[in-house]
Design a protein around this nucleic acid. Structure first.
Lengths: 196, 196
DNA sequence: TTAAAAATAGACCAGTCAGTCTAGTATGAG
DNA sequence: CTCATACTAGACTGACTGGTCTATTTTTAA
């Protein structure tokens, strides 16, 4: 019968709590209590907390990537404008979580990549897929003549991802989206410039 | 008699372990065992784990700021060259810790700013002092004619700090300093440019 | 020399952690 | 109906958590 509803509920609740408090600070019992699932069910679907954590990452990454694709491959909008919309969506999300959650992948990357290679690999794959989406959008901008082709798209993508993740971190500690705005401002003013 | 040696040993060990495993994942007992100090001493010097964590942050921030000042205010070197040296030092540190530790303040900012306002405030103050050091160096560069005065130094400083922290995060998950190099490359090529 | 204060020492506590275990219920196949 | 499997249910375990407690040793000041 494969009742996946309970499994999904666990993952959804896990993503929420881990996003708010981190992986280590989120107890399995807290997840169970929040979504009203007994412990027996948890260990029926997941063999350990680590496997659960990886499932949370996978599910989040899939959903996030779909959203990313929708934004960055929207061919009815000029490439650089798509990027601006992506940044705007990130700022809105930051507001909506009271500057507390930020980016789940970034949070876990910081917390777990020194703790477990399994987690680090999983998170790095997410970052790389994400970077590839940026590369696609940047190449589109270069082909459309919106963006100088002097800089390689993959270097730019790495630069943007780093900067954006860092801006999210600063926004969390500052409790303000200002660092995200400042990052975007200079990025478009100095880096993502039209051909000379 | 104010024996501060034990206290310092605790803080030093704490910084090391928290840097490696994060705050929540570092138990007091582990700190005590590592540096051979009994629990009675710990609670003689610190009233709680939180107070201990704040002391670790303070001590780290002070040491880091001193190093930062030495690098960024070295008037025998042109301002932008000072910045390059600072980035080089960061990359070296990343190598020396096997891409595992990264930046203690960044790590804790990610892990704790959603968990405790006390920690968030302390970490934000560190970031802001850090940013001010950058502002000073950037203004020096503008005065020396190395850097266009078109962009406000404080916006630039925020941009650089965000980007650098994000690059450190990426370097941790990738286990390579490449993101740090790519960030530096584009920063100097596109952002920290001489007056037109 | 002595008494107060500083510091060391670690057994101990209640609570929480991830994970196990046994029992029971629901469901689908034959 | 029958039986195996999927799933629910939660009491329980041993290890570990931050923190307390009492006792002892060391140092300082008078």
């Amino acid at each position: 019968m494969k009742n996946t509803a309970t499994r999904e509920k666990l993952i959804e609740t896990g993503a929420e709590l881990i996003g708010q408090h981190g992986y280590n600070a989120t107890g399995i019992n807290a997840v169970l209590k929040t979504c009203g699932v007994p412990k027996g069910s948890f260990y029926h679907y997941f063999s350990s907390k680590e496997e659960f954590g990886l499932a949370v990452i996978d599910q989040f990454a899939a959903a996030y990537d779909a959203q990313l694709a929708e934004l960055l491959e929207d061919t009815t909008t000029p490439p650089l404008e798509r990027l601006r919309r992506y940044f705007a969506a990130g700022r809105e999300h930051m507001h909506s979580c009271n500057h507390a959650t930020g980016c789940l992948i970034g949070n876990l990357g910081q917390e777990l990549s020194g703790q477990s290679d399994t987690f680090r690999d999983a998170l790095d794959r997410v970052f790389q897929r994400w970077e590839q989406r940026l590369v696609g959008c940047l190449k589109g901008a270069q082909e459309a003549g919106e963006l100088s082709a002097a800089l390689p798209a993959d270097t730019l993508a790495s630069f943007i991802l780093s900067g954006w993740e860092g801006a999210i971190l600063r926004a969390k500690t500052l409790k303000s989206v200002e660092p995200m705005e400042q990052f975007e401002k200079i990025l478009f003013q100095q880096v993502l410039v039209p051909p000379a």
